[in-house]
């Protein structure tokens, strides 16, 4: 669905030509070390960052040529992007629902359900800005799910989330995929990716290094070993830091 996406900032290449096919109904993990270009790639795929080259399609709709149709089909949980956090959780969901052109009655019903399931109903009228990091992730996920999209694009959905909330999010995502939805998410938490994903791609230095189903990429070894081997870099200290 992504073809030759490339972006450079001030002459520095952030993403240099990414091709990625995410099959419908798959649970896709985009792996990569910090600064690999995961967020840049996903931003270009959902229409937040204009690519220098390349195209992105969602179920046959070009994100950059036909944005209205394409954006209707996916829900996004961006990372490093603030929510409209001077609203309470319920207000934020209502805002997103109406923004998606949904019927107010449906918005009310779904928003209540999401708040209950994600254990955010207790927060009441607390503004999202005063939520904890994990709660912010959860309300962001709720915003992405509200209009029942066919594709979910999640940037670091498990970062800063406690184990209980992580388990809850995993459960929701698994049910969503079982129901015919497609998920692509970025992460560098190997355990989660290994447990959830049907497909993985490893991104480093703005280029896809490995791609395929989980079994194809890992083979006999653990995902962490493959990742470290592909990405490179040291994993143990030597003589230095003796003063610690």
């Amino acid at each position: 669905m992504l073809r030759g996406l490339a972006k450079s900032f001030d002459g520095k290449v952030a993403v240099g030509g990414v091709d990625l096919d995410v099959p419908a109904g798959s649970f896709y993990g985009l792996l990569g070390p910090n600064g690999a270009g995961k967020t840049t790639t996903l931003s270009m795929a959902v229409g937040l960052l204009r690519p220098d080259h390349g195209q992105a399609w969602v179920l046959g709709h070009d994100v950059w040529r036909d944005p209205i149709q394409a954006k209707r089909l996916f829900g996004v949980l961006p990372d490093g992007v603030r929510l409209f956090d001077r609203l309470s959780g319920a207000e934020l969901l209502a805002y997103h629902g109406l923004l998606r052109g949904m019927d107010p009655a449906v918005v009310d019903q779904r928003a209540r359900e999401l708040l209950d399931v994600l254990a955010l109903a207790d927060a009441g009228n607390t503004l999202v800005v005063d939520y904890s990091a994990g709660m912010k992730k959860k309300i962001g996920l709720a915003c992405a799910l509200l209009h029942a999209p066919r594709l979910l694009v999640l940037d670091e959905p498990f970062e800063a989330v406690d184990p209980v909330a992580a388990a809850l999010i995993r459960d929701i995502l698994q049910r969503y995929v079982a129901g015919g939805g497609t998920v692509i998410f970025s992460s560098h938490v190997m355990a989660v990716v290994e447990r959830l994903c049907t497909h993985v791609a490893i991104l480093a230095d703005g280029v896809i290094k490995r791609v395929g189903t989980l079994a194809e990429v890992t083979g006999e070894r653990s995902l962490e070993d493959v990742f470290v081997e592909v990405v490179g870099g040291r994993t143990a200290t030597g003589e230095e830091l003796a003063w610690l």
Binding site: E91, A94, G97, V107, D108, G124, N125, T126, L127, D130
Partner: peptide, 20 residues
């Protein structure tokens, strides 16, 4: 610096859309 806005407000129960 943690809290920028007024803290938890009271009242206004009701449907999320009406709250907005």
């Amino acid at each position: 610096t943690a809290s920028l806005g007024p803290a938890a407000r009271q009242g206004t129960p009701g449907a999320p859309v009406d709250q907005l």
